[in-house]
Design a protein around this nucleic acid. Structure first.
Lengths: 207, 207
DNA sequence: ATCGTTTTTAAACAATTGTTTAAAATAAGT
DNA sequence: ACTTATTTTAAACAATTGTTTAAAAACGAT
């Protein structure tokens, strides 16, 4: 233990911020070093290369993303409540990290290797028991019978995309940040109702 | 008229392909020139700079994206049929240009200026009369009352995201291209049913 | 064929890139 | 205090970047 925050961690933090906003090839190692206030060579001292550092950041971002889901799945709540909570948490989380979705997708497409499951994301999701829970609900008839990949797609699409498409939407509809934020707040409720109605069609339509 | 296809167009085509897959700062002018088979200097002869060329490609991509929507809106069909057609056309279009959504979003975030509406996308959408059509349907009660921005978000989220998240989904769920394609085909129907049910709640639930 | 214009090229430009080397500064162990 | 190991720096490295310059090639019109 040398510093309050180790240099290594400070570099990671700065790299995360820079990579997130500018992407891998959109920034330079010197830019990162400068934002930490250290020499360029120190980057290669702690991490072997720019690419290695990037992989680390990307991996961590993916981990955060999965973590926010796992946290909800572990809750002891009925499936429908979990669904609501998942959407709320996801919107809340992404509002704090709006660059995350685009960063992840752009990052994954940049790296051809993409050894994505060295962190065993699927395993961590499985351990929450959410898949069995859905399977049971589907057999009971309370939940619509869908492949879990499609269920995942529905959730991520409707939570991530509204956040990451801000520039597109503001550009096309010529609205400012405030109006966009207002749309987003409304959208959160829309998504919740739409997904619940679709996934659990037999329960109460209007509470 | 000099060539079958002008050099200018050949450069645009090559630049489009390269920019789409690698992004603005992910590629070099020499890479583009090489893929056309011409000298680097010719890029700056026809287009003034790499940035100018990129803006051109991005603008064209956005235009394609809006065009595919306008084409559907102009059809003389009931609103619900247009909805189905829009989703089908969008999936069909994006299957042919799967890099487009990510390219647009990454591109918009790279350019701080983003004078997005010099092509007057909103005007082109307005001219189709789709907004009035929805407003009328909403007053009649056949369509759920939502801000059109939220409606747009629902459509794009559920059409674009499934395509652009291929690497993420394949990575997490450890599936190959074939399995992913199968999920996508199913997802197209899922999205159609979910959106129709949500936007037009009073019509037939199960045909 | 000849002249002027357009298109294309080779070469060079200065700036920036990621990375390495070798030395300096700092910390730790004895 | 002295020695060793760790951390940090300045400087240099070769390669690559976007762009420009000036000359060559191709073309069009007369």
């Amino acid at each position: 233990m040398k510093k309050d925050v180790s240099t290594e961690q400070k570099i990671k933090d700065a790299a995360r911020k820079v990579f997130m906003t500018k992407g891998f090839s959109g920034c330079t190692t010197r830019e990162i070093a400068k934002s930490v206030g250290i020499n360029v060579a120190l980057l290669n001292y702690y991490f072997r290369s720019k690419g290695k550092l990037f992989e680390l950041i990307l991996e961590a971002a993916l981990s955060d993303f999965v973590d926010s889901m796992v946290e909800v799945f572990k809750q002891d709540l009925p499936l429908e409540s979990k669904t609501r909570m998942l959407i709320d948490k996801e919107f809340e989380f992404l509002r704090k990290h709006p660059e995350l979705p685009l960063f992840i997708h752009a990052g994954l497409n940049q790296e051809s290797d993409a050894e994505l499951d060295q962190s065993n994301f699927l395993g961590r999701l499985h351990k929450t028991g959410i898949f069995e829970e859905c399977e049971k609900a589907q057999e009971e008839g309370s939940m619509r019978k869908l492949n879990m990949i499609n269920v995942t797609l529905l959730f991520i699409s409707n939570c991530h995309f509204p956040i990451m498409s801000k520039k597109l939407i503001c550009g096309i509809y010529q609205i400012d940040d405030n109006e966009h934020e207002a749309r987003l707040i409304e959208h959160q409720e829309i998504v919740k109702e739409m997904l619940i109605n679709y996934l659990f069609p037999n329960t109460n339509k209007h509470a």
